[in-house]
Design a protein around this nucleic acid. Structure first.
Lengths: 137, 137
DNA sequence: TCTATAATCGTAATCATTCCTATTTACAAA
DNA sequence: TTTGTAAATAGGAATGATTACGATTATAGA
């Protein structure tokens, strides 16, 4: 997903396009890693003085809802990144810089067989550590 | 892990044994599922009127630190349960009651091969949904 | 029993997030 | 191009989980 695809999607769903909405999308497109609401606020305040928390959180939730962003919880804070929509996969997440690497392995087929009477709604498989460029002891 | 093993461990590590500490352990031993700090507070207030947040959170962190409890984040709140120490495994977690079922599948060996230059510190594999007894539409 | 210090209390502070109302803005229709 | 209206935003208060901290109490070893 990139900014213009996301804007298309928003239009198709009947949401309005605002400068702030575009800038939020551009931010995540350029960052390409997990970022918090605070990271986003700090970035947007440079160009949009006095931007409201409400705007930040409302749009983060909206984008998450419609699949523009994906989210995860890292040390008690929600983190967001552009959604990789092309196929199902999981992530290695760098604890230092938040960058991710896609992991193709998914053991859910195997797991489903062992959970016969369980109603599976969701699953999470994440690997945490340091990426090559953050290992400078 | 059960209450008496946990108390042994605490003694061995030089921590003091108090009535509240024992009661916290007993609570988790009996619950046998993921519970929040609030769940624990509500339970302890019945027998320890005026118990402090400090006591609750300090001990949750301590127990988590020494491996008596394991924790995960479920809808923005930390949840804790007695640690299953016998072998490495993952959990199906019921979104309704918090009960867990052990999953033996772990794809980390396979994953490690694809993350050659990455320093892996940790990983999380959790399946969410409804357990058989919580599926009463 | 006595003493050192770990544990706890009581409560204030913090921090992320949510909520609320008045105001502004995007955009569809005229 | 103008206008009407619902959506979006600002500004700030409220919430809820968690942390912090000085004063007090209790555990465990001497």
């Amino acid at each position: 997903m990139n900014t213009s695809e996301a804007i298309e999607l928003l239009k198709k769903k009947g949401f309005k396009t605002t400068g702030k909405r575009k800038d939020i999308l551009t931010y995540f497109e350029n960052e390409d890693r997990y970022r918090t609401a605070k990271d986003l606020i700090q970035h947007l305040e440079e160009t949009h003085e006095g931007i409201s928390f409400d705007t930040i959180y409302r749009n983060l939730h909206l984008y998450n809802e419609v699949g523009i962003l994906e989210s995860t919880e890292l040390n008690g804070e929600k983190h967001f990144r552009m959604n990789c929509t092309h196929h199902h996969h999981h992530h290695f997440i760098c604890k230092d810089c938040g960058k991710t690497k896609e992991i193709e392995v998914c053991p859910m087929d195997e797991v489903k067989r062992t959970l016969a009477n369980y109603e599976i709604e969701d699953h999470k498989f994440e690997i945490y550590g340091l990426c090559p460029s953050c290992q400078h002891t």
